[in-house]
Design a protein around this nucleic acid. Structure first.
Lengths: 218, 218
DNA sequence: AAATAAAATTAGACGACTCTAAATATTTGT
DNA sequence: ACAAATATTTAGAGTCGTCTAATTTTATTT
């Protein structure tokens, strides 16, 4: 059994491993967790001693099987709780991340699995991120960045990359929510901004916003 | 904002204050929390400095208004989560205490209040203990110990004093669950054990068990 | 390839919470 | 009321996770 803090380190390493191709750097972790690099070094030694990670001094860190299992377990709990908060308690998708950060550290496999069943085994969380199943299997959807669509093409919004409240609230106001159909009308060469048809309404989004939206083609 | 540990101290002081008439002793707290008396002394100094409690060396401890508010807030969360676990996730009342001990430390007033509404503002938890409302008001039922009933008298089970799994499972097997009607048929002078009529079945319970059951007369 | 910049680690310290052992205060029994 | 038993506090230390400052390693620049 691990402490909340160890779990947060594992989660962060897992998250950064997905992006970065190679090993994760100490400074990237420090930034992600909001602590000093020296603190990260200390913790990496501890997690390494417990075989959750493979840590090479001055090089970086990668995860072992047991580290990945642990991280996936936390992600599963986080995303299930987010579904609960939105679907059952009526929170907006921008409000739930912070609360789920706390709920994800409740230790009870029985609880997690019953929650899963209560929610009817959801496949994705309110941001479209996939929810690992009981066995830790993550079913990834074949999504692409909205920016990859050309004028005239269509897609269904499948996920949003970041979970900051600001972005999510903005997307809410522009109907850019999960499952909605989007058609690209035009892409401005000047700044890469896109003119979209969403829920029967035309609107523009900046390239930066569009880069945070993942769609399923079609 | 307090740590989990501080919250557990406040909860324990609150609980013991209800029983004990006067101030709560260091050793009682140590026993309740499963730590050494020396650790309790340290923490009492800290909580006292923050005005959550009134602490007099060698005498004992009592709570201030802000300490009581804090403790009631935790109790409210604990009991609401217990209702959730039993009513929505199908746990038995013996399984939920441990999980609720973790959930009660999630900090979000909005979450607590939405959970309350989702559960339809329950008045008591699965053990019959009253749930404080949003304003911290606890509505106590006029309950008496089952042992206070005389042969021929009846009562409705309103609460169980302890939340150990063993006792709760035993009560489950004997239909001694919340809301059930009980009629006292006989009390043995020899050992104080009671012959009861519960849910159409006659059965005996020891005096020790009976002392843990609270009923509403009638 | 040496000098400089950037990143990572070590060293030493601190706060939170805990412990054991020793000292002190209170209560109890005769 | 005084000695013995019990309860409580203090003293000193350990673990966990964090920090800053100093050092070492790696990367970059010229």
């Amino acid at each position: 059994m691990n402490t909340h803090i160890e779990e947060n380190y594992l989660k962060a390493i897992y998250k950064l491993s997905a992006d970065a191709k190679g090993a994760v750097s100490t400074s990237a972790l420090a930034a992600e967790l909001g602590v000093q690099a020296a603190s990260v070094t200390d913790m990496l030694k501890k997690l390494s001693a417990r075989k959750f990670i493979k840590y090479e001094k001055y090089y970086g860190v990668s995860m072992t099987k047991s580290g990945i299992d642990c991280a996936i377990g936390i992600v599963r709990k986080h995303r299930l709780w987010e579904v609960f908060l939105v679907d059952k308690l009526g929170f907006s998708w921008g409000e739930v991340h912070e609360i789920a950060e706390q709920l994800e550290h409740v230790h009870s496999e029985e609880l997690t699995n019953r929650l899963d069943a209560f929610l009817d085994f959801p496949k994705v969380d309110p941001h479209g991120d996939p929810i690992p199943d009981k066995e830790g299997v993550v079913r990834q959807l074949p999504t692409i960045l909205l920016t990859r669509l050309k004028p005239g093409e269509r897609g269904r919004i499948a996920a949003v990359k970041h979970d900051g409240k600001d972005l999510l609230d903005y997307l809410d106001r522009h109907n850019l929510v999960l499952e909605n159909e989007v058609e690209v009308l035009e892409i401005l060469v000047f700044d890469g901004s896109m003119q979209l048809l969403v829920a029967g309404r035309e609107q523009y989004v900046s390239e930066k916003i569009a880069e945070n939206i993942l769609v399923v083609r079609g």
